[in-house]
Design a binder for these strands. Structure first.
Lengths: 136, 136
DNA sequence: CAGTATCCATCTTGATACTG
DNA sequence: CAGTATCAAGATGGATACTG
């Protein structure tokens, strides 16, 4: 059986693992609150800044700006400036970005399939915590 | 082509999406810093608390305790107390937990395959940012 | 052994205002 | 239009000490 998933022991502990493991440095892409949503909004093609703001209603300019800059820095999104007046900037998923969406989709699929299980488990746990200990 | 991944528009904006989308409430499992590592440490079978501490060297008791409690609450891990002296507590992945590891593996695989691309993109981006050095 | 309690550092998110 | 700057708040992570 395959038991190598995180394989922390070969790194000498979790702390060392976090430091040494290159893939781990990349995980921020998927743990970020907005990255996935922004990438999803780019699936249909290039989008302008305020276009994204409208689609993703609820993000402040700052957060959208930050998210896009991080995605650009990680090579998941390209930023193209057209030197017109007024300025026109388009964001578009790269190949790498599209492949990343695949992972996002896998996460989303699991969440969709099992959300009810998890929510039920949470309710059961919270109710157990409120009740006194049942005698055996 | 499938373009329905986050499908934010059908929710009326990202803010509403985050509130209404049940799967989204479950994503914390994968965005947590330690959950994946702890679940990985449970792949080989049940583990005791301090056993996990040794495997995951670097976690404090508090963080391990918190992580395990969250995993238990979400139904991914069971906690079994043996009323011996000294106390013996064992943690074990549930079926749901094992299926969650599958997602973690997908994330890890992508990260492993593309970490170098992302790291290279970051370096390129950071170097571009340093170029236009203007004298003060 | 298996935790809790406390206190603090940091990181992320966000509201608001301003700019080329 | 497409951003940046500033400040504040909250979540998260962690070091240390104590307990049944």
């Amino acid at each position: 059986m395959d038991t190598t998933f995180p394989d922390i022991r070969s790194f000498g502990g979790a702390a060392a693992f976090l430091r040494a493991c290159k893939p781990r440095t990349v995980l921020g892409i998927f743990t970020n609150k907005w990255s996935g949503l922004v990438m999803g909004a780019l699936l249909d093609g290039p989008r302008r800044f305020n276009e994204l703001r409208r689609i993703l209603d609820g993000l402040t300019q700052k957060v959208l700006s930050q998210t896009l800059r991080n995605l650009e820095r990680d090579g998941l999104v390209t930023r193209t400036v057209y030197p017109t007046i007024p300025p026109r900037v388009e964001y578009e998923l790269t190949e790498l970005g599209h492949s990343g969406v695949g992972v996002l989709r896998a996460i989303g699929d699991w969440a969709g399939e099992h959300a009810d299980d998890v929510i039920a488990a949470r309710q059961a746990y919270d109710e157990r915590a409120r009740e006194p200990v049942k005698p055996v």
